[in-house]
Design a protein around this nucleic acid. Structure first.
Lengths: 237, 237
DNA sequence: AAACAGTTTAACTATTTGATCAAACTCTAG
DNA sequence: CTAGAGTTTGATCAAATAGTTAAACTGTTT
């Protein structure tokens, strides 16, 4: 009843979780990971051009597949976008959550968070840019997902870290600071340099030459600067 | 000789500086600041949708003018975009430069930079988002403008501040840190919270209620955290 | 008022875009 | 081999898009 009744998959609509749910792989006409190729290409193009600026044909070219396949697998442009976004959002939220549940002191908690955050961002730059794009334009999609995530606070690594800051202030591990601004500074310091990387490269030519070194240097610097900045007054190094 | 020879202004092409060069205002048919209205609307739409995603008709609607006027004043979409970008870039670079030339100690230099940066960003959010958008996609326009600006180092406030950090380390005003990473952290902390403001609002509902308080709080927090983080070992508060 | 330069408008073109569809293809199951 | 479900393709459509143009309009100058 719902539109033409051919045998179409359309995985993105029903289960916006994994890019190509391996569980229901009904390999027949040698798909060869067509769906995953679409997904990856879509992530790149959406990240660069945004939802409105991205062209379906460009995604198809990037994935080296026939443009019609985009609609075969994802029905429409908006559904493809939402599938990509939802996957990234879930991955982003889920990845860090676990590592923070261990009961470490503040210094180790911060180190874990910063290292994990930077590792994720620099290995998923496209997804990070896509998310930021959504943040800047303040579209309804992000708001929908974000408010849902904020509800169950203990699954948002950012909010967990914020709670950790509050606790550390109370226990005297760090000096009294505004937890929300501090959290904002942490996220900014980890995220921004990689999102704006094309620009950073112009100022840091060495970041292009030895990227891994730049990433590790970034981790060290952020943790070091924050720990120094948050150390209680009077406590020596 | 250059295309049709009607009497067209096209200010954006020749002099990409001020949005509506008041010098050559040839007021006849009651323009009523049409060009400035276009400019402002274009900034908003380009910031939200990017160069590729923005639609000329949307800009025209936003400016409440006839779509054809966009081409009358700016010839093409790409020239309109470049005019908007160039204006923002020049304004961005020029504004902070002067304030840093005064010979202040490091603490005051940092305070001046952070306050000036945040003031500019939060009063020109659209322009900041547009610039960041250009940063993320790494288009040729930004690279062209940026490399030109880096050449004359003493006109880039960011690089001037970085030089100030190096000097402060040598003079012992602050402890030895990586100047480039430190600079990145400063810029990140000032820029990101306002660029991603729609998202921040979900976590900081009070930022929406009393925006001015949030801005001032942000300035204080960033300066405070950085000064603490950079203070030489052993020096009391 | 007549001429004129600058501005605004609506109608138009050519191209691009997202989306659809029937036909062809591929592999497996019977 | 044949039937059939799932997949891929090229052709095609309607809507949207950037850009053009001639005519109408505005105010100023003569």
């Amino acid at each position: 009843m719902e539109s033409t009744d051919n045998t179409a998959p359309v995985v993105g609509a029903g289960d916006p979780s994994t890019p190509a749910g391996e569980g229901a792989s009904s390999e027949s006409g040698e798909s060869a990971g067509t769906e995953q190729r679409i997904f990856k290409a879509a992530t790149e193009v959406f990240a660069r051009k945004g939802q409105a600026g991205a062209r379906m044909r460009e995604i198809a070219e990037h994935a080296e597949i026939n443009p019609a396949l985009l609609h075969y697998y994802f029905r429409s442009k908006s559904q493809l976008y939402e599938a990509v976004f939802a996957h990234g959002f879930k991955q982003f939220m889920g990845g860090l959550g676990q590592s923070l549940k261990a009961d470490l002191d503040f210094e180790e908690s911060l180190r874990t968070f910063v290292h994990g955050y930077i590792d994720y961002i620099h290995t998923h730059q496209d997804m990070a840019r896509l998310m930021l794009n959504e943040c800047t334009c303040g579209g309804p999609i992000l708001e929908r997902y974000l408010t849902a995530a904020v509800a169950k606070r203990d699954e948002m690594p950012g909010l967990m870290m914020e709670d950790r800051i509050v606790a550390a202030i109370e226990s005297g591990e760090i000096r009294p600071v505004d937890p929300q601004h501090t959290m904002l500074t942490i996220v900014s310091s980890c995220l921004f340099p990689f999102v704006a990387l094309p620009t950073v490269r112009i100022f840091h030519p060495e970041a292009a030459d030895d990227f891994e070194a730049f990433v590790e240097g970034r981790k060290k610097h952020v943790v070091d600067l924050l720990l120094s900045g948050l150390r209680p007054a009077g406590s020596a190094e």
